[in-house]
């Protein structure tokens, strides 16, 4: 956040009923909020819905915003809650928590190929995105939200814990399991697409 001071001034003005100041806050933060929705739901309409719900809720709750966390963290928290509600209504099958727990236990008996040298050209990249999105979507909401906030948004563990109101230890566990699961899915993808099967023993 480069603009925290400016944000704080705008928040004060918006609290005093300055509609233009609130619109400026939307202008400054909408990129992040829209993309958060896009990254969680992979769909423009859902991202637009989440953005709208977030700013309406923010406007209504502005008097309750005490500034203990930054305005953008507060917005992230609201937006993440709306995203979680949408995820919970999704019909697609989710991987079970049991299975996510087992991945790290079973790693010892799994073949591990290093596919990091496989070339990924422009066309392959789109295909890879599709495979990855499908895998991300199959993560249960409480794992997907951690993965998106921590690894895609790039937020530190403490901030993710704050946004989701969970402990840092829970963020770490969910992050680790999500990464291992997605790694496994990507390994399957590289194996199937046969980009270059590195044989390692």
């Amino acid at each position: 956040m480069t603009n925290t001071d400016g944000e704080a001034v705008l928040v004060e003005r918006a609290k005093n009923g300055d509609m233009k100041a609130f619109e400026d806050l939307i202008k400054i933060t909408s990129g992040r909020i829209y993309n958060l929705g896009l990254r969680m739901l992979h769909n423009k309409e859902d991202a637009a819905d989440i953005m709208q719900e977030t700013y309406i809720a923010a406007y209504e709750n502005l008097p309750k915003f005490k500034g203990t966390s930054s305005f953008s963290t507060w917005l992230y928290r609201i937006a993440t809650n709306f995203a979680l509600m949408k995820m919970r209504k999704e019909k697609g099958r989710k991987v079970s928590e049991e299975r996510l727990k087992d991945i790290s236990k079973n790693l010892y008996n799994t073949a591990i190929n290093d596919w990091t040298d496989s070339p990924v050209d422009h066309l392959k990249k789109q295909e890879l995105k599709t495979a990855l999105d499908k895998a991300i979507e199959s993560l249960p909401p409480k794992y997907r939200s951690v993965f998106v906030l921590h690894d895609i948004e790039g937020l530190p563990i403490a901030e993710v814990a704050d946004i989701l109101s969970i402990s840092k230890a829970a963020v770490k566990t969910r992050s680790h399991r999500s990464r291992l699961y997605l790694r496994e899915k990507l390994s399957e993808y590289f194996k199937e697409s046969g980009v270059k099967n590195l044989i390692r023993t």
């Binding site: 896009l38 190929n113 290093d114 596919w115 990855l132 999105d133 993965f147 690894d151 895609i152 790694r183």
Partner: peptide
């Protein structure tokens, strides 16, 4: 190999989800 592929998983996730302009 596990470390490399785990790191690459994160890199790919970021690269395929670059920030888009809000319409």
């Amino acid at each position: 190999s596990l470390l490399h592929t785990l790191e690459k998983t994160i890199v790919f996730s970021r690269e395929t989800h670059r920030r888009k302009k809000v319409p």
